[in-house]
Amino acid sequence: MARLKGRGVAAVNYPTGMNLGGDPSQALIHATTTGSFVITLSSVDLGQGIKTVGAQIAAETLGVPYESVMIDTADTDTGPHCMGTFASRGTHRIGNAIMMAAKEAREVMMCVAATELEVDAGDLVTDGKGRIHVNGAPDKGIAVLDVALAAHFKHGKTISGRGMYLKPKSEVVPETGEMDPDSCQAHACTIAEVEVDDETGDVTVLKMTNAYEIGRAMNPALAHQQIVGGAWMGISHALYETTEPYYPNRAHGPLDFSEYLMPGPGDIAEMDSVIIERPSSNGPYGAKGIGEMTANSPIPAIANAIFDACGVRVTSMPITPEKILRGLDALRGNPN
């Protein structure tokens, strides 16, 4: 009896945005009297981080500190329409809407600053730290706080902006399937290293090496969270999970976490992940969506590594010890 090691590779692409488009999102931005910015959405944060990344995009476009931007999701009375959080669309769609709203708000902010400084708005730049000044003359400037105060109490102006992003819906040609399904594609390659116990059929994923191309990584730490969490879900899908263990037979469906199996903290693999960036042509600052795709290359990489380790090709998910043992029996010529 032996523990057999193997290595497998898989490479994938994944579309950003709702398939065929037609999925708009909107954002509103306004400055408070003291130069904070509030982004109003009806968008949902499931943990993927739109509250964070949305604020980063707004701060970048407005030229103000990240800390001065707030997102308080989500309420249909105050937040404009958003199609929802799915289809790896949030950063791309909502991000684009926020960027558009922030551009409009920035224009007003620079106009008010120009009036206050008695210069041309075109000569002004933001320093990203809360000040606006004449390009090349940092001393000739004004705090965003004072611009907001002046806008409210002297000029009667609202520093605000509206943004919306829509990729118009593509219709499918029924005969050929001709269509425009995506805004852009992100990419990933995973190399999985596994160990198969040929006595128990048990698989241990030893290491996963992941390379991701996700356009521009808006927040690399958050992208890394998706990669690591998704790789774990990939191990889980590949080896453990199903609500119907004898599919298509409906019997023995799990009802709790002691029956529905997933890897625990002791079953995680060593991870080595790298991000490369090819900014997209239509995402905010070149972003693509990464949220969904991160389990996709790990699953077949593990399946291929299992074959490499023990010669058993399991073509149905999940790859349970039972399936591996049956495969090993078949290889050894034993009847099942």
Binding site: G47, V228, W232
Partner: peptide, 20 residues
């Protein structure tokens, strides 16, 4: 020790690594 301590706690997002 940390892995053993949190082995009764499920996280569906992180893959546990950052928590450990």
């Amino acid at each position: 020790d940390v892995v053993r301590a949190i082995s009764g706690n499920i996280c569906r997002c992180t893959g546990y690594e950052a928590i450990i």
